[in-house]
Each structure stands twice: as structure tokens, then as C-alpha cells.
């Protein structure tokens, strides 16, 4: 054994070491992630939509005249009949109210992203906290939240949203909150709790307790970091369900949002063009395809992350 007095002095500050370690783990996980074509395709689609969302305000400032191309108030007087088919002036045509479809599509992308991410963040925060707490404390708390989860799982999700939006005029943030809370107390909690139960019996929890760690220390230092990969995974799946629910509600005209993909289809339907999709395809296909693509993209990324998080799923 070497002499203890000749102890090394650490040259780098702790936060820098932690940052380096964090980057290292990000790099390793990234390498695993891009091995999977499913994840790469999903990510590419998400990036494509993100680009659309970012480009819209820039285009409005530079190329597009707001009186013609504004997604909500614009109207093109130079075309006599609306909806007009795609042309050089309107790449995806105009809607029955004379507004540019491409501009609407790009403008809505921002809405969908914000809605999806906010809802998913709320879901995951609630799911992780409740899951960890009910696994850790058990007993009454556990029973309460698990029966609540059963109840939420049992309820028909979309129907509940329809009733809620009929009762309260839902705007985008309120909708994100409702979706986030509903799915947060539902299935996600049960899954995260089952994972937390397997952490609870690990000897390192006992070691932490022997060291003097209280409940809060154990939950924050030992439970949450081990639950986060799973939470992150379910975040991806929640984005999908949030975007989908929004589209359904907008289609029924039940939410107070200025523009979204669901509202684009809703406008088509109220103007009576929905049953004539073959002739007026540009009114429905772009919005429908966007919903499908973005939903599947988040799902694909989720599946690929599943393989990163869960080594047993990897084909090695």
C-alpha cells in the first residue's frame, strides 16, 4: 500500500469532469442510435419538419407578402376561383378561403411541435415523480395512484378530450396540459413504477440508507437517474399521441387554435370539399400526410431509443 500523505491533487474542476463524462455518454449513445436505420429515418423527418417551422417566419419576412400569404388572414385577389390548384404562385394551391396551403402547413408545424413537446414534458414529469414515489413509499400512496392510473387507462381518451373541450374552450397550452396530465397519470406511471420497483430492492439503496441518506436523497440520486432513460422513451410516444389528439379535436372544430393541420382539414370539410379529395387533393393530402409523418417519426425515434436504453433488444 502506498503512503497516504502523498495524495494527488486534482487539477480539473469537478464540473468540467462531469461535463466531459456527460458528452462521452452522449457520444456513445449517439453511436448506438445511428446504427439503427429506423431511428435515423425518424430523426430526418423530425428535422425536416423543424426546418419548416423555422423557415416560415423567415419566408414571411422576406419572400412572402403578408396580405397574400398570411396563413390566417391572407387572400389572393389575383386568382378568381378558390380553392386554386398548385401553381408557381402557390406551390400547394389555396384553400376555400383563398389562403396559401403551404404557408398554413408550415405555420402549423410550430404549433404541433410546441404542443407535442409541452404535453410530453408534463407527462414524463408527472409519470416519473408519481412512479418513483408510489414505488418508494408503497402502501396507501401506491394504491391511490395505481387505481387512479387504472381509471385513466380505462377511460376513452379522445372522447374525454371532446367532452372537456366542449365544456371549456381549450387553447393550445390548455390542451397540452390536459393531454399531459391525462397520459401522465395513466399508463406511463404504471410502467415507470414497475421499473422503480426493481430499483427499490437493489443493494445500493440499502447502502445509501446506511450512509444516512433520507427518502429524498434516495429518490433524487438513485431512483430518478435510473428512471430517466425510460421516461425519455415514453416522452417520444406521448408526442405522437398529443399531435394525433390535437388533429382529431381540431377536425371536430373543438379547440381554440388559430391554425393547425387538423384545422386545415376542418376548413376543407366545412366548405364541403372533403368528399371530393380526388379533385381537390391539395386541401387534404398535405395536412394529412404531415400528421402521419410527424407522428410516425416520433414513434420511430422512440423505438430506436428503446434499443439504446434496453441492450437486450439490440441485435448483436
Amino acid at each position: 500500500m502506498s503512503d497516504a500523505s502523498s495524495v494527488t491533487v486534482i487539477h480539473r474542476p469537478l464540473w468540467r469532469v462531469r461535463l466531459e463524462l456527460f458528452w462521452k455518454s452522449v457520444r456513445t449513445n449517439w453511436a448506438l442510435f445511428i446504427e439503427n436505420p429506423i431511428g435515423v429515418i425518424g430523426l430526418a423527418i423530425i428535422l425536416f419538419f423543424a426546418l419548416m417551422a423555422v423557415l416560415h417566419p423567415i419566408l414571411m419576412k422576406t419572400v412572402w407578402d403578408p396580405t397574400v400569404y398570411d396563413p390566417i388572414t391572407g387572400y389572393d385577389f389575383e386568382i378568381l376561383r378558390h380553392p386554386a390548384p398548385p401553381s408557381a404562385r402557390h406551390l400547394l394551391g389555396t384553400d376555400p378561403l383563398g389562403r396559401d396551403v403551404l404557408s398554413q402547413l408550415m405555420y402549423s408545424t410550430q404549433t404541433e411541435f410546441i404542443l407535442g413537446v409541452v404535453a410530453a414534458l408534463i407527462t414524463v414529469t408527472i409519470g416519473t415523480l408519481i412512479g418513483a414515489l408510489s414505488a418508494y413509499y408503497g402502501g396507501v400512496i401506491d394504491t391511490l395512484f395505481m387505481r387512479l392510473a387504472d381509471l385513466v387507462i380505462m377511460l376513452p381518451f379522445i372522447s374525454i378530450l371532446i367532452v372537456l373541450s366542449a365544456l371549456f374552450k381549450l387553447n393550445m397550452l390548455k390542451l397540452a396540459l390536459v393531454i399531459g396530465i391525462l397520459s401522465g397519470f395513466g399508463g406511463v406511471t404504471v410502467i415507470i413504477k414497475s421499473q422503480a420497483l426493481s430499483i427499490k430492492v437493489k443493494p445500493y439503496i440499502e447502502a445509501a440508507r446506511v450512509a444516512g441518506g433520507g427518502d429524498w436523497h434516495i429518490i433524487v440520486v438513485h431512483f430518478i437517474p435510473n428512471l430517466l432513460p425510460l421516461s425519455f422513451l415514453y416522452m417520444m410516444f406521448t408526442v405522437t399521441s398529443a399531435i394525433f389528439s390535437e388533429a382529431v379535436l381540431s377536425f371536430f372544430g373543438l379547440i381554440n387554435i388559430r391554425m393547425s393541420w387538423g384545422i386545415m382539414i376542418h376548413t376543407t370539410q366545412t366548405a364541403g370539399y372533403l368528399l371530393n379529395v380526388g379533385q381537390y387533393w391539395w386541401l387534404v393530402i398535405p395536412a394529412g400526410l404531415a400528421i402521419t409523418l410527424l407522428c410516425s417519426a416520433f414513434y420511430l425515434v422512440g423505438r430506436a431509443l428503446d434499443e439504446v436504453v434496453n441492450p437486450r433488444l439490440r441485435r448483436r
Binding site: 463524462l21 443493494p203 450512509a211 433520507g214 440520486v221
Partner: peptide, 29 residues
């Protein structure tokens, strides 16, 4: 009073570094 556990594979949180694991008693105390 401290305890050394039987299973060296399960008695350490896999997401913590050796520093965090060894310093844990000092940190919580």
C-alpha cells in the same frame, strides 16, 4: 457504523461515478 455488502455488482448505482459512490456518505452527512 457502516456496512459492506455482499454483491459488488449490485451495491453500486450504475449511473454514478466511483467518486460519487465513495463520496456519498460524506455528501449525505
Amino acid at each position: 457504523v457502516q456496512m459492506i455488502f455482499q454483491d459488488p455488482y449490485e451495491s453500486m448505482n450504475p449511473r454514478l461515478t466511483i467518486y460519487d459512490i465513495v463520496a456519498e456518505p460524506m455528501a449525505v452527512q
